[in-house]
Design a binder for these strands. Structure first.
Lengths: 281, 281
DNA sequence: CAATATCGATTGGTAATACCATTTGGAAGG
DNA sequence: CCTTCCAAATGGTATTACCAATCGATATTG
């Protein structure tokens, strides 16, 4: 009983196999052609599978950690070919909703989505030239300003301690000339700021924009990151005092320096070589 | 003839310049089996194709409107199977970078990415429960506040005229009881606001968040939208006077009403049935 | 007996192939 | 010249086969 894990997964027969992942919604292209001329046929088969699983996810029928049947089983149950199932699963994986694992007791597992898919998409827009770096940094400044103010209002001591620790790690990494580690900590700072602000939406968006800055920094291999430590300590200090205006000003100063550096140094983004498709590692 | 490709049997990082679309640089020597215990075999074949095309896009080698070779040609040029090429193209389409068209003179065309992919991803996060509606509306309020202030500072008469026209269309649609049209205009308002603010990043983000609100509104089929017209006229009026604080306050009041309605009425999102996968129509 | 090594079954990953559906352009016919 | 229709090209789907990776169970060995 390999996948008893998955709930019900009812299949009703083999021929009309129109079936669904969990209940009967009138099935897919059982007979391959959309019934008569009703529909526009623009819907591709794998999209129906995609939407079906996605719908079940949204309705809570599938929870993070659950495992879907194997591709072969799904294909048989749905009455479609395995490539169709594959493409649907791939699209879902691409959206960060599924994780595909090989091997026995592998399969498609429901993920609890995080912001990485958003990051990648925003990333695409920037590097495809649809969004300019100027506007990105500007928007990022506004968002961080808001996050700082919220952190002043809502941050807890635990949040501040986490930020302290992060700044300290950053200092060590910078002193050790560990560029990758430094930038990693730099990014964590923003995430922790979002946490202190108690707004995950803000956190995700800030994370998406910051990741782009991080990639650029990584490609630039900057030397003088030391002043960042002082700046952040000042911001953190103001936040701890719950002085929103002062904290905002300090953060703005910080952003002015950082963004000016990034925008100036990375004249043309085409020079940068990045590694996309993080595979949700 | 499939495996006739040369094999640089790379050690782990030589798969850099492996390929160049359209420039006959055959095969990913990148053997799928990363040598020995080196671990981390994470990179799947189609991801290399994906990244390769993506890189060419970012470097400007491929411009919007360009057409890639057919799947069959690509498969042959790259020395991989057609399914691999397919999955890569699919992923790119999913990211909004490609458009696949059937028929002769069809193929894979480079798209100029827009914010829809971002919207869908954010959408997923919300409806999968990772992001709460409360936080979404809060973040949206902040962003719109910023947009309003920027519009006060940078908006042109043309921008304001467009906003005027939008409000008027919205009024007509609401009076005609055309719910879909009303909501469509409601959303356009935010996009136009972003345009007036002269920051595309802000526009994309606001659009993503607003689209979720729009979907909820669509599912709720609200009745009394009439007060929206008055509220927006007020906001617009303040913006035109370049009075940022007043415009911000008016917008905040507007958001308070709208968001309270949405949050209250849509107790559990699971009731809502939405249509995902817009297929970038 | 316990720790280790090996094998095999399951599952995703890739490949090759065939055929269908759709679209478009050009040829044939009016 | 216009219309109609067919055929080639292309994406979409299905089928099949095999490879690769993983993990559990069994066998082996200390």
């Amino acid at each position: 009983m390999a996948h008893a894990v998955l709930r019900t997964l009812t299949r009703h027969n083999s021929h009309r196999g129109c079936l669904d992942i969990l209940e009967e919604e009138e099935g897919f292209g059982c007979d391959s052609r959309r019934v008569e001329a009703g529909r526009i046929m623009t819907q591709r088969l794998f999209e129906e599978v995609y939407n079906s699983i996605r719908r079940d996810l949204m309705r809570g029928k599938l929870k993070p950690g659950d495992k879907l049947p194997s591709e072969r089983d799904l294909a048989e149950q749905l009455g479609v070919g395995r490539p169709v199932v594959r493409e649907a699963l791939r699209a879902l994986e691409n959206s960060g909703m599924l994780e595909l694992r090989k091997g026995v007791s592998g399969g498609a597992f429901i993920r609890q989505g995080d912001g990485r898919a958003v990051s990648r998409t925003v990333n695409d827009l920037v590097f495809l030239g649809k969004l300019s770096l100027d506007q990105l940094t500007e928007a990022r400044s506004y968002l961080l300003d808001q996050a700082v103010r919220l952190a002043c209002a809502r941050g807890t001591d635990a949040d501040f301690a986490a930020l302290d620790a992060n700044v300290e790690r950053m200092r060590v990494a910078i002193e050790a000339q560990a560029v990758e580690a430094s930038i990693s900590e730099i990014m964590d700072f923003y995430a922790l700021l979002g946490t202190a602000a108690k707004n995950d939406v803000l956190t995700v968006i800030i994370g998406s924009l910051s990741e782009i800055i991080a990639q650029i920094l990584l490609a630039l291999r900057p030397e003088h990151l030391t002043d960042l430590v002082a700046m952040r300590r000042e911001v953190l200090d103001k936040i701890r005092q719950r002085d929103a205006d002062a904290a905002s000003a300090a953060m703005a100063a910080h952003m002015a320096v950082l963004h000016a550096y990034v925008v100036q140094k990375s004249g043309n983004l085409h020079m940068l070589d990045l590694e996309p498709f993080d595979s949700h590692a």
